[in-house]
Design a protein around this nucleic acid. Sequence first.
DNA 1: ATGCCGCCCGTAGGGCGA
Length: 256
Amino acid sequence: MLSIATWNVNSIRVRLEQVLTWMRSHAPDVLALQELKSTDETFPIGAFSALGYQVAVSGQATYNGVAILSLKPLSDVVHGIPGYEDAQKRVLTVTLDDMRIICVYVPNGASVDSDKYQYKLQWFEHFLKYAEKTKKEYPKTVILGDYNIAPEDRDVHDPVLWQGQVLVSEKERACFKALLALGFQDTFRVLNPEENNYTWWDYRMNAFKRNMGLRLDHILATHAVMVRAKQCDVDKTPRTWERPSDHVPLVLQLDD
DNA sequence: ATGCCGCCCGTAGGGCGA
C-alpha cells in the first residue's frame, strides 16, 4: 500500500504539532501541504526529517506556500508552473519512483466580480497546459491539493445559497471539468460515488458543527494510477481539535 | 451585511482567505 495525502494547514507554524501528530498516527507515504504562510527559511524541515521524511518546499511569507513530504526519495523537483511567471507560490512538483506528483494551491478568487477571480481563471488556463504536458511525459500523474472549487452541487452543503458564488461558479467548475477531460479522475468521487462529504468548513457561524461545508480539496489521478486506487477518504478528526485548520486531510490509498 | 472567524504583520487594524 502507498498512501498519498493532502492537507491545507492554514499556517504551518500554527499547525505544526497537529500535522506531526496526524503524521505519527497515519504515517502517510506522501503528504502534500498548502497555505504554509511560511518562507523556505522558516519551514520546519527538521521536524519532518526527524520523522523520516524528505522535504520539498516552495514557501512564501504571509500567503500561499506549498510543500511535499515523502518517505521515499524525491527527485526532479520543479517550482511553480514552468513558463508562467507568478510571484505566488502555489505549485510544486516532484517524482517518486515513476509517479509524478503535483501539489497545488489554486487561487481562491475572492468573489466573482473581483480581479482575483479573473486571476484564478487565467491561472487555471496555465495550469491546465502544465497538467496536459505532465500527463504526456508521465502516464502516472497525481495532482492533489486545495483546488478552491466544489465540482458539483452535491459537494456543497447548500447549493441554492452558493449558486453562482466563487468556489462554485460555472466558470470555475468548467476549469475542473477541463482537467477531468484531460484524463484525470477525481479519486474521491470515483471511489465514493454516493458519499456526501466536505473537506472545508468556514470558521464562522459554527459551520463545522452544522456541517456547512464544501468539498474543495481533491486528489486527481491518471488512469495508470487509478487502477491501483483502493480508497480515498476525508479525515474530519483534525477539524475537531483545538485551533484547527479550516481544511482537513484527504487520503488516497494505492495497492502495490 | 462593509457582519461572523482565524492568520499575518506588527503591535493597530487592514488584507486575505473561503
